[in-house]
Structure formats: structure tokens, C-alpha cells
């Protein structure tokens, strides 16, 4: 009973939704919407569980006076102040975000939005440090990553065209250097000369390629976004879709039931 019923519920609700997908006739036609509404209601109530977990976690810290207990206390106070203020404004003005709501005027505009926006804006810093650290041309794949990121970045801003040739030139220089140092160690003479020849070629190519990017960086960025980027995305999507269907089938059939134990 404790184990079989959940598996049966999962099976029935899953299969019903798949069937409903192919039947426009009621009651199937609106089943997906209906299930969604139910889900929203259930998850709304489940939030009480979450809040219980959060407050208990921090209340324990406060009562044990463990490290940072003061911050835990401010979390609890912030929670209740927001909750009471929100409902107070809501009851007084009909809706917590209504025009006269002080909750909207002050809490939302001067606490919630700044916190959210500032946390979000940290990404500007992290994107820089991640690019600096991770985009090292140590392998061929990494070089590709670096190259396409750089072109798209420069292709999207004014002045980008002016800078792109230098970047591309440098990448070719690095490439030439790698080929040369590899070639020098090569024992087989043909391979050695091929690699060193490749290095020389990369050096020669710097000028025409640089000229190309001086004029066409934005277009190249657009091409990368619209053609190879899209192609890889499609391939990944097909994989995700197939994996998702298989995973769903495993769940419906009870092969995958981690969540129920």
C-alpha cells in the first residue's frame, strides 16, 4: 500500500497526460491545463514545508548561539517582517502589489529589486573571471571555444571590428608557436617539416585573416550564431528529447523511482 499506490499514481497521471496529448475531445483536451493548476496548488502548500525547514534551521542556530547566530536571527526577523508587511498591505489595499501598498512602494522597490538586481549583476564580474581562466588554448577544442567566444563578443559592440584583428592575429601567433615547438621535437623528418611549414603558413596568414576580421567581424559573429551554433544546439536538443522520453518512460513504468524510497 505504501509503495504500490504512489507507483500507480505516477503511472496513471503520466499515461493520462500522454493520451490527452492526442485527444482534443473533453475531458482530455483541458487535462494538461487542469493538472498544471493542481500542481501549482500543491506546490503552493508545499512551500509551508520549505519555510518550516528554513526557519527551523536558523532557529536552531540562534538557540544554540552557534557561529553567525546573529545573522540567522536577522533572517528570521526579515522573514516575518516581509510576511506581515506583505499581507498587511494586501488586506488593506486589496492586493500586495497594489498602488497604495507601502509593501510595493518600499519593500519591493528598495529592498527586493536592488538585492535581486545586484546579485544578478555579479554575473558581469564572474563572466570575466571565468573567461580569463578557462579560455586557455591548451587543446584544440579549447581553442575553438576561445575563438568563437571572442569573435561573438567583439562582433556585438562598436569598435569590436577594430580590435578583432589583433586578437585573431595573436591566436594565429600562438598557433604557429605551438606547431613550431611541436615540430622541433618531431623525430620523423616529413612530419617535422609539415609542422614547421604549418607554423610558417600561420604566420603568413595573419595578415589576410586580420584584414578579413577588420571588415567582417560582426558578420562572422552572426554566421557563427546562425549556423554552427544552431546546428550543435539542434543535435543537443535531439539528444535531450530522446533522453527525456526514455527517462519519462522509466519513471512511468517504475524502473526509475529514486524519488519514492
Amino acid at each position: 500500500m505504501k509503495r504500490e499506490v504512489p507507483i500507480a499514481i505516477t503511472f496513471i497521471s503520466g499515461v493520462l497526460l500522454v493520451i490527452a496529448f492526442f485527444i482534443p475531445h473533453e475531458p482530455f483536451g483541458s487535462l494538461e491545463q487542469r493538472f498544471n493548476d493542481w500542481y501549482i496548488i500543491v506546490s503552493g502548500f508545499a512551500l509551508i514545508l520549505g519555510i518550516d525547514s528554513l526557519l527551523l534551521h536558523h532557529w536552531n542556530k540562534v538557540s544554540r548561539r552557534s557561529k553567525d547566530w546573529f545573522h540567522s536571527l536577522s533572517l528570521i526577523i526579515a522573514f516575518f517582517v516581509t510576511l506581515i508587511w506583505g499581507f498587511y498591505s494586501g488586506i488593506k489595499t486589496g492586493h500586495f502589489l497594489s498602488a497604495q501598498s507601502t509593501f510595493r512602494q518600499y519593500f519591493y522597490m528598495y529592498v527586493f529589486v536592488p538585492l535581486q538586481a545586484t546579485m544578478f549583476s555579479l554575473l558581469a564580474f564572474f563572466i570575466a573571471s571565468a573567461a580569463y581562466r578557462a579560455f586557455r588554448a591548451d587543446r584544440f577544442e579549447a581553442a575553438l571555444l576561445l575563438f568563437s567566444a571572442g569573435i561573438v563578443m567583439l562582433g556585438r559592440v562598436p569598435l569590436g571590428n577594430a580590435v578583432a584583428p589583433y586578437m585573431v592575429g595573436l591566436v594565429f601567433l600562438i598557433f604557429a608557436y605551438l606547431l613550431y615547438s611541436d615540430g622541433r621535437k618531431e623525430v620523423d623528418p616529413t612530419r617535422r617539416y609539415l609542422k614547421i611549414g604549418g607554423a610558417v603558413l600561420s604566420l603568413i596568414l595573419i595578415y589576410p585573416v586580420g584584414w578579413f576580421f577588420l571588415h567582417y567581424t560582426a558578420q562572422t559573429a552572426g554566421w557563427i550564431m546562425n549556423i554552427p551554433q544552431l546546428a550543435a544546439k539542434r543535435g543537443i536538443f535531439v539528444g535531450i528529447a530522446l533522453g527525456g522520453i526514455a527517462m519519462s518512460l522509466r519513471i512511468i513504468l517504475g524502473i526509475e523511482k529514486t524519488y519514492l524510497r
Binding site: 564572474f126 563572466i127 571565468a130 573567461a131 581562466r133 578557462a134 579560455f135 571555444l145 567566444a149 544546439k233 543537443i236 536538443f237 539528444g239 535531450i240 530522446l242 533522453g243 527525456g244 526514455a246 527517462m247 526509475e256 529514486t258
Partner: peptide
Amino acid sequence: TTSVTQLPFFIAATDYTLIGEEMYAAS
């Protein structure tokens, strides 16, 4: 993750990344 837009950041910042379907194959 299966969020294609976030995969580049994981590739850049983490040591190993399961790309899309690889994650579903994990179990």
C-alpha cells in the same frame, strides 16, 4: 544540466560537465 544556454558556463567554470543527454544516462 540540460539547459543549453547554461552549459557554456559550466564547461568554462567547472572541472567536469555532463552535457544534456549524458545527464539522463547517468542513472
